[in-house]
Amino acid sequence: MLNYKQLNPNKVYLITGAGGFIGYFLSKKLLEQGCTVIGVDNINDYYDVNLKHTRLDQLKPFEKFTFIKGDLADKALITEIFEEKKPNVVVNLAAQAGVRYSIENPDVYIQSNIIGFFNILEACRYYPVEHLVYASSSSVYGANKKVPFEETDFVDTPVSLYASTKKSNELMAHTYSHLYNIPATGLRFFTVYGPMGRPDMAYFGFTDKYFAGESIKIFNNGDFENDLYRDFTYIDDIVLGIERLISHPPAGEGVPHKVFNIGNNNPEKLMTFIGTLEKCLSKTLGKQVEFKKDFEPIKPGDVPATYASTDALQKAVGFKPETSIEDGLQEFVDWYVGYYGVE
Rank of each mutant, 00 (worst) to 15 (best):
L2K: 13
N3I: 07
N8A: 06
L14S: 02
G20Y: 01
G20V: 06
L31D: 04
E32R: 05
G34F: 13
V40G: 02
D41R: 05
I43A: 01
D45H: 01
Y47M: 00
V49D: 03
N50G: 09
K52C: 00
T54I: 08
T54G: 01
Q58Y: 03
L59G: 10
P61K: 00
K64D: 10
I68C: 02
K75E: 13
K75A: 11
A76I: 11
I78N: 06
E80Q: 15
E80K: 12
N88L: 05
Q96Y: 09
G98C: 06
V99R: 01
S102R: 07
S102L: 06
I103H: 15
N105H: 14
P106K: 14
P106M: 11
N119C: 07
C124E: 08
Y126E: 13
V129C: 01
H131L: 05
A135N: 01
Y141C: 10
G142S: 05
K146A: 13
F149T: 12
F154Y: 15
P158A: 08
P158M: 11
S160F: 10
T165L: 08
K166I: 09
K166F: 08
N169I: 07
M172C: 07
A173N: 06
A173M: 00
L187R: 04
F190E: 09
F190Y: 14
Y193F: 14
M196P: 03
F206V: 03
Y210A: 02
F211D: 00
E214T: 02
N220T: 00
N220L: 00
N220D: 00
F224Q: 14
E225G: 07
E225Q: 12
D227S: 06
D227N: 05
R230L: 09
R230E: 11
R230P: 04
D231L: 03
T233E: 09
Y234H: 15
I238K: 06
L240Q: 15
R244H: 14
G252L: 12
V255A: 05
H257V: 14
K258N: 11
V259P: 04
I262R: 03
G263A: 08
N265W: 09
E268M: 13
K269S: 00
M271K: 15
T272H: 09
I274E: 01
I274R: 01
G275C: 04
T276A: 07
K279V: 07
K279D: 14
C280M: 11
L281E: 04
Q288F: 02
E290I: 09
F291W: 08
D294I: 02
K299P: 00
P304E: 04
P304K: 10
P304W: 11
Q314V: 10
V317Q: 05
K320Y: 14
E322N: 15
S324I: 02
I325R: 00
F332W: 03
D334V: 15
Y336T: 10
Y336C: 04
G341D: 12
V342L: 08
